[in-house]
Design a protein around this nucleic acid. Structure first.
Lengths: 184, 184
DNA sequence: ATTCAAGCATGATGGCCGTCATGCTTTGAT
DNA sequence: ATCAAAGCATGACGGCCATCATGCTTGAAT
């Protein structure tokens, strides 16, 4: 083999990271395979040595990106204070302006609907995110925890999407602020 | 002129309606100009007799589609009961399955962010939708009405987007149900 | 009846994109 | 030392798309 296996795996990961960032910034259809490869420092050719197709990359990228959300939950303090902190960070101006490094769901959820190969991975990870949110944080009652988690996740995603779509900074900030107020 | 002005205006409207439906179903970038024209029963050529560009159509389509949301609010009973009814309809399985006839924001908000020409119209109409939601329905306090409206709209949009992205019907229904429970 | 141009269909153009084919390079395995 | 093949770069192909060019059709205005 020309390259040691570790180096190959590292390139696979690099493609995945760059793709995930670019997808979040400009959407699945807004980024070309060639552009992703250029971002990793390679040419467009060897893409197919690492992935079967762009759709396969999209699916893997979703798993990868949403796993990071899960990891972020895990490393957040599992208290009411930790939850408030998490909400404040999620609904911050910094997160609004950093699509490429931010939440995968807020960036791509509405495109996932139209991409058959992407819906499975999305569903898998969203279920984990809901379950972790329900179990990791304290809630008024154990019975309502899962519902509370679904409401919190959905509300945060919706508010961030609207704040990002809006052309008026003050209005965007108002959306984030009001949702923070409702959730902490 | 070859055609009476009324007929020309009617074609403009028909293009706009078909475009709005298709955009909601498959996103801005998922629909081609030719496809829109074919849906109206014309060929691709005369598109530019009616619109300056695809981007201009997108902007006009957003204004048109979100105006319908405003009209829907107007014709809903302005009571607590009317609001509950509105939420139940918005967060229904029927709405989830009818992207093409449903809410413009839930279908296109995350694509609007990347389309410079679309953000202005989107912002304009979203402001009206928030204002109308705050003024049309009763809220616990007048002071909190606008914040309550922002939270309600954001939460509904987020829940619908996630429910649509998900591959598991039971999970999708759970998301809608929990958000209904939180909002009525 | 003649004229005129709005608005139509057809077709072309240039660009981008996903994917595949080809050949070269290098290094671990023999 | 030789070999085999993994993985690279270059380039090509076919398809789709937004947009423009061209010429025709037709009904309203004269």
């Amino acid at each position: 083999m020309r390259y040691p296996a570790s180096e190959t795996a590292e390139k696979h990961t690099r493609i995945l990271n760059e793709a995930t960032r670019l997808f979040r910034e400009r959407g699945f259809s807004g980024v070309s395979v060639g552009e992703i490869m250029k971002a990793t420092g390679l040419t467009h050719g060897p893409f197919y040595n690492h992935f079967d197709s762009k759709e396969a990359l999209m699916a893997e990228s979703l798993l990868h990106g949403m796993q990071k959300t899960l990891d972020g939950l895990e490393t957040t303090e599992g208290s009411a204070k930790g939850r408030a902190e998490y909400v404040k960070n999620y609904l911050s101006g910094a997160h609004r302006d950093a699509c490429g490094a931010g939440c995968m769901m807020a960036a791509l959820a509405s495109e996932v609907r139209q991409q058959p190969q992407a819906r499975g991975p999305f569903t898998t990870r969203l279920k984990s995110i809901v379950a972790k949110t329900a179990s990791h944080f304290p809630w008024p009652s154990k019975r309502s925890a899962r519902g509370d988690a679904i409401r919190m996740v959905s509300s945060m995603v919706g508010a961030l999407i609207l704040a990002r779509a809006v052309d008026d900074e003050a209005f965007a900030e108002e959306i984030l602020k009001e949702m923070r107020r409702g959730l902490v």
